[in-house]
Deep mutational scan, measured.
Amino acid sequence: EPSQADLDALLSAVRDNRLSIEQAVTLLTPSSGGGSGGGSMDAKEILTRFKDGGLDRAAAQALLAGRTPA
Rank of each mutant, 00 (worst) to 15 (best):
E1I: 13
E1N: 12
E1A: 10
P2S: 11
P2D: 12
P2N: 12
P2E: 11
S3A: 10
S3M: 08
S3V: 11
S3H: 09
S3T: 07
Q4V: 07
Q4G: 12
Q4H: 15
A5L: 15
A5R: 08
A5F: 15
D6R: 07
D6E: 13
D6N: 09
L7N: 03
L7H: 03
L7G: 02
L7M: 08
D8T: 07
A9W: 15
A9L: 09
A9S: 09
L10F: 04
L10T: 03
L10E: 00
L11A: 00
L11N: 00
L11S: 00
L11F: 06
L11I: 03
L11G: 00
L11Q: 00
S12F: 05
S12H: 05
A13R: 05
A13C: 06
V14N: 00
V14A: 01
R15W: 14
R15K: 12
R15Q: 08
R15A: 12
R15M: 14
D16Y: 06
D16G: 06
D16H: 10
N17H: 06
N17D: 07
N17Y: 03
R18I: 13
R18A: 07
R18G: 04
R18S: 08
R18P: 00
R18C: 08
L19R: 01
L19V: 07
S20H: 03
S20P: 04
S20R: 03
S20G: 04
S20K: 03
S20N: 04
S20A: 04
I21T: 02
I21Q: 01
E22A: 08
E22F: 06
E22C: 07
Q23H: 07
Q23E: 14
A24Q: 00
V25E: 03
V25N: 03
V25K: 02
V25M: 07
T26H: 14
T26K: 14
T26N: 13
T26Y: 14
L27S: 04
L27Y: 12
L27F: 09
L27P: 01
L27G: 02
L28Y: 03
L28I: 06
T29R: 11
T29M: 10
T29C: 08
T29Y: 13
P30L: 15
P30K: 12
P30G: 15
P30V: 14
S31T: 12
S31R: 10
S32I: 13
S32P: 09
S32C: 13
S32G: 12
S32Y: 13
G33K: 08
G33C: 14
G34L: 14
G34Q: 09
G35W: 03
G35Q: 08
G35T: 13
G35S: 14
G35N: 10
S36M: 14
S36T: 12
S36P: 11
S36I: 10
G37N: 14
G37Y: 13
G38N: 15
G38Y: 07
G38T: 11
G39S: 12
M41I: 13
M41E: 07
M41G: 06
D42P: 05
D42L: 11
D42G: 07
A43Y: 15
A43M: 12
K44P: 03
E45C: 12
E45D: 14
E45T: 10
E45W: 06
I46N: 01
I46Q: 01
I46A: 02
L47W: 01
L47D: 01
L47P: 00
L47R: 00
T48N: 05
T48F: 04
T48D: 03
T48G: 04
R49L: 14
R49N: 04
R49A: 07
F50R: 00
F50L: 02
F50H: 02
K51T: 02
K51L: 06
D52A: 14
G53E: 03
G53K: 04
G53Y: 04
G53I: 01
G53T: 02
G54T: 13
G54N: 15
G54F: 12
G54E: 14
G54Y: 14
L55Q: 01
L55S: 01
L55T: 02
D56E: 07
D56I: 03
D56R: 03
R57F: 15
R57T: 06
A58P: 04
A58D: 09
A59S: 13
A59M: 11
A60D: 00
Q61Y: 13
Q61S: 14
Q61F: 11
Q61C: 11
A62M: 11
A62C: 14
A62K: 12
L63R: 03
L63V: 02
L64I: 04
L64M: 03
A65Y: 07
A65P: 02
A65W: 08
A65H: 05
G66N: 11
G66D: 08
G66K: 13
G66P: 05
R67L: 06
R67F: 13
R67G: 05
R67H: 05
R67A: 08
T68D: 10
T68R: 10
T68K: 09
T68G: 09
T68V: 08
T68F: 15
T68L: 06
P69R: 10
P69K: 08
A70F: 02
A70Y: 02
A70N: 04
A70K: 06
